[in-house]
């Protein structure tokens, strides 16, 4: 069994009583240890797919198997449990708690865990996680005092603290300059190869997507094509086609 398996996922939003189909039968599988890029223009449905993958949202129909659990029919609390234990999130805008030290930010997810873990153990794990990100000397820094790249690394440390099977990164470099973007992406690559963490990168940027071992293109709510990333040239003809493809419908709630 694959780590992630989507079977014929449909998601339809209702805007003013009008059904707006966002995902129209998406099926895909991600094996453990993969580094996958999910690519698509805005409005293509990649954010919705990402929310479903992250157990934040439920598909209208279809099955979502995550590590042997059927997540699409789970209750809210069960999905919260899955998010806590199996999934780590990295966001475009970092989403760190303001006026809270890096260490506290990283420890935060552990306060919702069902694991029996003492406070000192939790802190120990947070320190390890931050050290892995190269932030051992920034434990007591508040986000405002950290650079963008450092903030994103704190966010990644936070995502890794509960030892998830999957790391979901939604435009993780969107707010970073190209140099720090490169660093963060290399970090992802290292986490993937050295720690064996499955990573799903959601992006619209083919330059980012090329760091992945496999690229899944999505447009208009269906999988448009997938294939191994061509690491030699930034942005294949296919990916470029997907990026600049005009939108079929307005973003209305689907993004």
């Amino acid at each position: 069994m694959q780590l992630i398996e989507l079977r014929d996922i449909y998601k339809t939003y209702h805007v003013d009583e009008l059904p707006v189909p966002v995902l129209r039968g998406v099926s895909l599988a991600v094996a453990e240890g993969e580094l996958v890029a999910l690519m698509g223009a805005s409005g293509s449905g990649k954010s919705t797919l990402m929310n479903i993958l992250g157990c934040l949202d439920r598909p209208t129909s279809g099955e979502y198997w995550l590590d042997g659990h059927e997540a699409s029919r789970m209750s809210t609390d069960e999905r919260a449990f899955l998010r806590n234990h199996k999934i780590g999130f990295v966001f475009q805008n970092f989403n760190l708690l303001p006026r809270t030290t890096a260490l506290e930010n990283v420890v935060m997810p552990l306060s919702y865990t069902t694991e029996k873990i003492s406070d000192s153990q939790a802190r120990q794990r947070a320190v390890e996680s931050l050290t892995l990100m190269g932030l051992a000397d920034r434990l007591d820094y508040e986000p405002a005092k950290l650079s963008g790249g450092q903030q994103q690394r704190v966010a990644i440390a936070r995502a890794l603290i509960s030892k998830p099977s999957i790391l979901l990164a939604d435009e993780p470099t969107g707010n970073l300059d190209s140099k720090t973007s490169e660093e963060v992406l290399q970090l992802f690559g290292r986490l993937n190869t050295e720690e064996g963490i499955t990573i799903i990168l959601v992006t619209h940027d083919p330059g980012i997507a090329k760091h992945a071992k496999r690229i899944i293109h999505i447009s208009d709510g269906i999988i448009d094509g997938q294939g191994a990333a061509d690491n030699s040239s930034p942005g294949t003809a296919e990916s470029r086609r997907n990026v600049y493809r005009p939108r079929r419908f307005d973003s209305g709630g689907a993004q």
Partner: peptide, 16 residues
């Protein structure tokens, strides 16, 4: 709101 969303994303249940 964002903090709440984040807490929920990392596994906080509604009752938490």
């Amino acid at each position: 709101t964002r903090e709440i969303g984040l807490r929920m994303a990392v596994g906080a249940r509604a009752r938490d």
